[in-house]
Design a protein around this nucleic acid. Sequence first.
DNA 1: GATGAATGAGCCTTCATTCAT
DNA 2: GATGAATGAAGGCTCATTCAT
Lengths: 219, 219, 219, 219
Amino acid sequence: MPPDDLPPPAEAGPRKQPRDTRRLQLIEATIRTLARSGFARMTLAEVTRAAGLSQGLANFHFASKERLLTETLLFLAEEYRLNWTGALAAAGSAPAAQLEALLRADFHPAICTPERLAAWCSFWGEAQSRPIYQERCGANDDTYIATLEGIVSRLMAEGGYAGNPQRVARVLRNSVEGTWLDMMTMTAPYGREEAQATVLTCASLIFPRHFGPEGRLVA
Amino acid sequence: MPPDDLPPPAEAGPRKQPRDTRRLQLIEATIRTLARSGFARMTLAEVTRAAGLSQGLANFHFASKERLLTETLLFLAEEYRLNWTGALAAAGSAPAAQLEALLRADFHPAICTPERLAAWCSFWGEAQSRPIYQERCGANDDTYIATLEGIVSRLMAEGGYAGNPQRVARVLRNSVEGTWLDMMTMTAPYGREEAQATVLTCASLIFPRHFGPEGRLVA
Amino acid sequence: MPPDDLPPPAEAGPRKQPRDTRRLQLIEATIRTLARSGFARMTLAEVTRAAGLSQGLANFHFASKERLLTETLLFLAEEYRLNWTGALAAAGSAPAAQLEALLRADFHPAICTPERLAAWCSFWGEAQSRPIYQERCGANDDTYIATLEGIVSRLMAEGGYAGNPQRVARVLRNSVEGTWLDMMTMTAPYGREEAQATVLTCASLIFPRHFGPEGRLVA
Amino acid sequence: MPPDDLPPPAEAGPRKQPRDTRRLQLIEATIRTLARSGFARMTLAEVTRAAGLSQGLANFHFASKERLLTETLLFLAEEYRLNWTGALAAAGSAPAAQLEALLRADFHPAICTPERLAAWCSFWGEAQSRPIYQERCGANDDTYIATLEGIVSRLMAEGGYAGNPQRVARVLRNSVEGTWLDMMTMTAPYGREEAQATVLTCASLIFPRHFGPEGRLVA
DNA sequence: GATGAATGAGCCTTCATTCAT
DNA sequence: GATGAATGAAGGCTCATTCAT
């Protein structure tokens, strides 16, 4: 990518910033750059240019490129976790409502931006060869999996659905991930709305007595 | 072309090998190396070492690293296509049988090896920033999508299932992809058998009158 | 100025220290750091950390790393000079006593510490390529050389020793330097006492009628 | 040092050279560069320019700058060893002749060049902080020390000289090293001839019945 | 066709130096 | 005076690519 295609140096603000402000600035620039160039082509020069900062500063705050990437993944993972835990807390105690909240959360506009999806995708691609990434990549949030399995379990019991709850939970989870991946790799990707609808359709097919054809909660 | 039909992995034998033998040797080595090191860390030196050939040979046969990678993706894509078209051709004309064949095909032992999954994953991670990859990455096989939609359409009509066939087809496709991704990023991955069962469970939930709880075709 | 007379190593105390206290603090930290890391690896960050001061302060007080190093060498050279001139002044007028005083002075506990030896060694290693260091490195103290030659001259005349006084003086001087170097590069170094004994043995071999076998002045 | 002061790129000879030829070429260039710039300022760019080769080649043959330096030291150490063992072998069995051979060997024109002296000096300066250098730096050649002590021992017994042979041997050895160091750090250094004469003068003062005033062997 | 030494551009990293606070 | 975040030049190292053999 020729330099003229690059965005102009971002405003970096006052010369001296609190430690965490700078770190956040660099992490956000890393996400943007991962989305633009991919993992293999991302350079620190590009990241710091995107942040409007000097190259030395990335090493000053993160010690190495590797660490900057790791911290970026941790940031995304934490952001993801806060998003679904927050949505769940607001959903009440009915399992159907909880499931809907969880599925919708993954497509919340703050989480499900093209940039963040692309960044996640970059990490997925490298996760196989880097244990530290593998530990933190989405699906491995044990709490998330356990929570989803619990909700599905209760919903199946309550609604009289037959089947293996663990596997059904996995179907739902994989459906979400597959949809995320699809949004990235399709040449003519569909949008967030349609993606969410796809996943809710999956839920409605599995739990027809709780989710209507458009994924709306029944009753 | 299921790998069982492939010539056995050529040893770095006689000095003059047929052109295509060498190319295949290098492509297979590339797949192995992508799986071991990931896209960002893969080097030509590692690939040629894995192939038991000299450094210069990759450039001689593929002109550049970029080309070697592209041809490796094309090879995987063609292998994938031959796998599902072959399975479909053997499945008869009943939509349920065709769907089952299609879903099972993606977990055929020749296609669904840890190495090939990892290689696919590597390409997915970079696809967002490389149009040439995006065009060829799994889900974008237009023929596959159209075929699947046709089958799902007929099955829904035939079985009296309500809903949007295109979206249902997407649910199934994303379920497969999500499951593939899950097999890669899980720290304690489940195996091919359980993955296949998960996808067939998805089918049985969607088409309960055609697929039994274990994914077995009903009558 | 033997270090016993130096102010105690200043703690990084009150914000406003007299100018020279800070400078001395930094110079002592430089000596310690040279000994620990060597010339090539010494960084200002390490020096200021050793001094318990901030990064910017070295530049504030010495303008550049080069200047800090030069001033450190000057400090060592002056310390060395004060040491031998002081010892000489206390030795009376007999050439043998003066020679003994001069030779012993180089192994005075205040001068001949592992840290200071290592620092000297660092400067020697770089002296060849830096004129400013070469001018100040130990042996090039013209006054010292002239003084030593004068003493040796008188001693040889007085004691009836044959030979070229200038060369004999050089033998003694090189013996001292060689011994210093030896103390640094030996893997199992001998101590200050044995080093001093070695040099005095040299003197006793050259001036057997003035120095006993153990280097003690003979009556 | 401004680039214009650098020597023009050396002739590197034919593009492809045997492995050891290239290694030697780079080691010699390292010695030259150490002499010119000192340890701290030596860069790989400078070394390879001096060798007339590309920068990448140094890493190709030595893997890192650190290794290149280590191998250069090993090369110098081996060269030094071959020089004194060869001289000793040619000296016959009389201890006085052996001692003379050993002392003269250190000033042999092939060993005692300004460049090699300067390179040794560079390593000495860093030896304190790098164990691997310390092990290999001159004085630590255990065989050399043991050999010298044996010769001195026999000479003292044979000549009826009183004293501690180990310490006398050390006086001689330190005298040589001090003289080497002196040749480097003196602003107006004396030459090889005078240095050799200085050391032989030392021998003649210690063993007056075997060495004449000019260091010539008596009888 | 095949080899592997050689090249050189590009990247990460270090670190002396600057400067706003 | 003092601090430490910020800068940017320079160096070591990697690695795709070339090419003489």
